[in-house]
């Protein structure tokens, strides 16, 4: 049988395959390791971690919508110290890349976490969350204005030891402007899309379904928007892209890769089936065998004008 090459490179970091987890849906892998062999994943992208513990939002934090779900968890996390003492040693046991998602309210908070991670040799890359719609300060505030995004990217790059992924918000008029700003700021890689801001109303109780009123919409309902944005960004900048947004199957993942993504993240689908990452990986391999594609890199951005 033909051997296929699944290895891809993101800003000089080699991944054994392009399948990774989307931040916030997989914790630090501890809970999912009961279902998934983490050794098989290209990378685990952790839930966002801040300089100190964050309480997150009140409940309900979650609401299902047609073909999707909204969350307003609000980046509850234990802070960087606990994360470094507990979660990195856990992930280190596995033969997978560790990508740490970093969140903050202010530039100084992002910088503090990134500086702290500079000493962590097992962390392969940093993903900077400037696109969470569920926190009042920071988060998306840095991700909706090109100047602010460029500035935070520069600030993070100044202290980062690992390659930096800027995670882009789809809640903007023109995502290519944001991608260019991140590139101008020195980003090494982009990931997109984060969730779309949405709202659900409980008509029986006549109230908001989420305590936070609004939440981030994810799941297959948003996939066409995400594929479109990955395609647009791939045309606009030369940075590698991690594509995500509603990937449920290998076919979905392949859409992102063909649109220009070097790697893909599985998020909401982990809740639908904890084994989705592995199913997607195996499905991509099967597709390559079926079509006689020897190297996954041949598929990246293969569909264009």
């Amino acid at each position: 049988m033909m051997n296929v090459n699944m290895e891809v490179s993101l800003a000089g970091v080699t991944l054994k395959n392009p399948v990774m987890t989307a931040s916030g849906t997989f914790g630090s892998g501890v809970e999912y390791s009961e279902f998934v062999d983490l050794n098989k994943l290209g990378a685990v992208v952790t839930k966002g971690v801040a300089n100190v513990a964050w309480q997150g939002n009140p409940t309900p934090r979650i609401a299902e919508t047609y073909g999707g779900m909204m969350n307003a968890v609000g980046l509850q996390n234990p802070g960087i110290d606990v994360f470094c003492e507990r979660d990195i040693p856990f992930l280190k046991q596995y033969d997978t890349r560790i990508i740490v998602n970093v969140c903050g309210h202010t530039e100084a908070e992002y910088v503090e976490v990134v500086e702290r991670l500079a000493a962590e040799n097992d962390v392969a890359m940093l993903e900077i969350n400037v696109s969470c719609p569920n926190v009042k300060e920071g988060g998306i505030a840095f991700g909706q204005k090109p100047e602010a995004l460029e500035a935070i990217t520069k600030a993070v790059k100044r202290v980062a030891r690992q390659p930096v992924i800027m995670k882009l918000s789809p809640n903007v008029t023109d995502i290519t402007e944001m991608a260019k700003a991140a590139e101008a700021g020195g980003a090494d890689c982009l990931s997109l899309i984060n969730t779309l801001t949405g709202m659900k109303i409980d008509v029986d109780r006549r109230c908001f379904a989420l305590a936070n009123k609004t939440g981030g919409l994810s799941g297959p309902a948003i996939k066409p928007i995400a594929v479109r944005m990955v395609y647009q960004v791939a045309q606009a900048v030369s940075l590698p892209i991690i594509g995500m947004g509603g990937i449920m199957t290998a076919e979905d993942a392949l859409e992102f890769i063909l649109a220009g993504a070097t790697a893909v993240s599985i998020g909401t689908a982990n809740f639908v089936n904890p084994n989705t990452t592995i199913n997607v990986l195996e499905g991509i391999e099967a597709y390559m065998l079926n079509y006689g594609v020897r190297d996954i890199n041949e598929l990246i951005g293969a569909v264009h004008e």
Partner: peptide
């Protein structure tokens, strides 16, 4: 509480705890 993952990863279904919790070191 409304849940998503059901296994403790997504932190959707928290309730307020009197002591600091072992997972996130807050009160959830």
């Amino acid at each position: 509480e409304k849940m998503a993952c059901g296994i403790g990863a997504c932190l959707s279904c928290v309730c307020e705890s009197t002591e600091v919790d072992a997972h996130s070191h807050v009160h959830n």
